Computed example of a mutant assay.
Amino acid sequence: MTSTPYDSGGRDPGTGRDETPEERADRRWGELLQELRVAQTGVQILFGFLLAVVFQPRFAELSDTDRIIYVVTVMLGAATVAALIGPVSYHRLVAGRRLKPQTVTWAARLTVLGLVLLVCTMCSTLLLILRVALHDSLALVLVAGMALWFLVCWFVIPARALARSTREREK
């Protein structure tokens, strides 16, 4: 007989919560949807502004380099939108097929990918704006500093908290 981490009621005593795997998946899905709502709104607004830039009169004055940066930025924005809306599509296509835990796992992965793409989109957008505003290499330095700030806020701080929590549990 193999041992299972779940008690006879299907509840996982290792999570610190009294919930079945299905209840846990439902809770995690709800939390993920709240996170996606925040990210999706900002990304959709940013992407809308990016799409409008090409129709502005000054767009014709951009250098070839700035036009390339613009195209890369729009493509990154589109990829970000796809990754952050992807969990909704995934859920809709597999709903009712008892795949909620797998759906939550894949949706979380798409969300992290979307956040990475969002960092790239934000940095590319900043590079374009600062190149137009400053006309010098200071733009690259400012974008590098902001990229570092995004990475610290979005990835380093949570990774440190996770590492600290893991170390405390192992004691």
Rank of each mutant, 00 (worst) to 15 (best):
V119H: 09
V143G: 04
Y70V: 02
P158F: 01
E61F: 06
R17T: 10
L50F: 09
P158V: 01
G114I: 04
I69G: 05
Y6N: 04
L36A: 12
V71I: 15
P101F: 13
V119P: 04
E35F: 03
R97I: 08
R37F: 07
T121Q: 06
G16K: 08
S3K: 11
F59S: 02
G96K: 00
A161T: 01
D136H: 13
R109T: 04
L128P: 03
S137C: 00
D66L: 12
D64M: 14
P87R: 00
R98T: 14
A108G: 15
L99I: 11
T80K: 03
T166Y: 13
F59G: 02
T111L: 06
H91W: 01
L138T: 09
E19V: 15
A95R: 15
A107N: 01
A133M: 03
L62G: 03
F47A: 14
T4M: 10
A82R: 05
G114L: 04
V156E: 08
C120Y: 05
T65I: 12
L115S: 14
W149V: 13
E19L: 15
L50Q: 15
E19P: 11
D26C: 06
R28I: 04
R109H: 07
R109C: 02
A60H: 12
A107D: 02
G42E: 05
T105P: 08
V152W: 10
P21K: 10
S89E: 00
L130W: 07
R160Q: 09
Q40R: 07
Y6W: 06
V88A: 08
V53R: 11
V71R: 15
T65P: 10
P158L: 02
F49T: 09
A133K: 04
L128H: 03
H135G: 13
S124C: 09
V112D: 10
C153H: 06
P57C: 00
D18E: 10
A39S: 01
L128M: 06
Q56W: 05
F47I: 11
R24L: 08
C153Y: 04
T105Y: 15
V143F: 08
A144L: 13
R92S: 08
V112R: 12
A82W: 09
L32K: 01
Y6C: 05
T20L: 01
L151M: 15
L134N: 07
D18C: 03
G9A: 11
T121V: 02
T121Y: 03
V116Q: 10
T73N: 00
A83G: 10
V38G: 00
H135Q: 14
